[in-house]
């Protein structure tokens, strides 16, 4: 009571009640696992003699040297990056196009279309992958006329078949984010442009898109995070296609490595992957923000 800085904080008890539970759980189930993964990744298994008992000891950066030398890991990273470079722009492009169309005065029945486009977001990734797995299958598909000719599940196309599943689920969600920020633009903004004789395309390009850029950036960051974490869809596709291997995406490789079990290496994969995700989304955020506000 006598110390001045103590008196400045009022309602300490209430603050503790409000923040305490979340802080405790966040520490237990976010901070602790991150710390544990980092610690685990510095361990290494040593055997005394060929048949001696295995023992976990401190190995410094041993696991990270293995990660760097692991071709399967970098192959899987390259695969999801290729996936992301194509899928994320396509998905966001379609989402932007649909949002602009729904927002334009030309379109009738915007409410129905909004619901129709958003519906797939209610389908969990696993279920969506099962559905599309059937749709692609050369024998089980309702469209066997097409799927017997085009091998959607072969090694050449399967990555893009998975990309289509992800796009199908998430376009509507991203569209809704962009659409809601379009709705937030006050009408006066358009009036000047309309008086100048600008058409709807012109308004969309020079007025609307710059104004919804923050929303597009947000969807971009979430999409990048999602792409690097791909797991459920390829895991389901392993039932339908032999082309999807157990190291097809980084997270599948983590899962496979942990099942070996080689926990230290799996932890090192996870740490590198989380760092890469962080760096990539952070860089993307900085790059686009600089361009957006210049």
């Amino acid at each position: 009571m006598s110390r001045p800085f103590r008196r400045r904080v009022q309602h300490k008890g209430a603050i503790a009640i409000f923040i305490g539970p979340f802080a405790a759980l966040f520490t237990l189930f976010y901070l602790l696992p991150v710390a544990y993964a980092v610690w685990q990744s510095t361990r290494t298994v040593e055997r005394s003699g060929t048949f001696g008992p295995a023992e976990e000891v401190f190995g410094g950066l041993t696991q990270y040297r293995e990660v760097i030398a692991d071709e399967a890991f970098w192959g899987s990273v390259g695969r999801v990056l290729l996936f992301g470079v194509v899928q994320v722009p396509v998905m966001l492009g379609v989402a932007l196009l649909l949002a602009l169309l729904l927002d334009s005065p030309v379109v009738k029945g915007a409410r129905f279309f909004r619901l129709a486009f958003f519906a797939p977001y209610a389908v969990p990734g696993v279920i969506a992958a099962i559905m599309w797995g059937f749709l692609y299958s050369p024998n089980l598909s309702p469209f066997t006329g097409v799927t017997r000719e085009v091998d959607f599940l072969g090694s050449g196309l399967v990555l893009w078949s998975i990309a289509n599943v992800v796009t199908w689920v998430y376009v509507g969600y991203n569209m809704l984010i962009i659409y809601s920020s379009l709705l937030a633009i006050p009408g006066e903004v358009y009036e000047a442009a309309l008086l100048d004789g600008a058409g709807q395309w012109r308004i969309a390009w020079s007025v609307k898109i710059p104004l919804v850029l923050p929303a597009i950036i947000l969807t971009g960051v979430f999409s990048i995070i999602g792409t690097l974490q791909l797991l459920a869809e390829p895991q389901v596709f392993r039932t339908f296609s032999t082309a999807v291997t157990s190291d097809y995406t980084p997270n599948l490789l983590v899962y496979t490595t942990a099942a070996v079990p080689n926990q230290p290496l799996a932890a090192a994969f996870s740490v590198v992957l989380a760092l890469a995700t962080f760096v990539l989304s952070f860089t993307f955020l900085k790059l686009t923000q600089r361009r957006a506000f210049q």
Binding site: V9, Y30, V34, Y36, A37, I225, A267, S270
Partner: peptide, 27 residues
């Protein structure tokens, strides 16, 4: 509420948004 460490807590939590849930599953 204003209290010391408020921004630190908020920034740590915000960092948590960027940690992919799959990276936490194994640990």
């Amino acid at each position: 509420y204003a209290f010391p460490g408020r921004e630190v807590i908020f920034n740590v939590v915000l960092g948590g948004v960027l940690v992919p849930a799959t990276a936490l599953a194994l640990p």
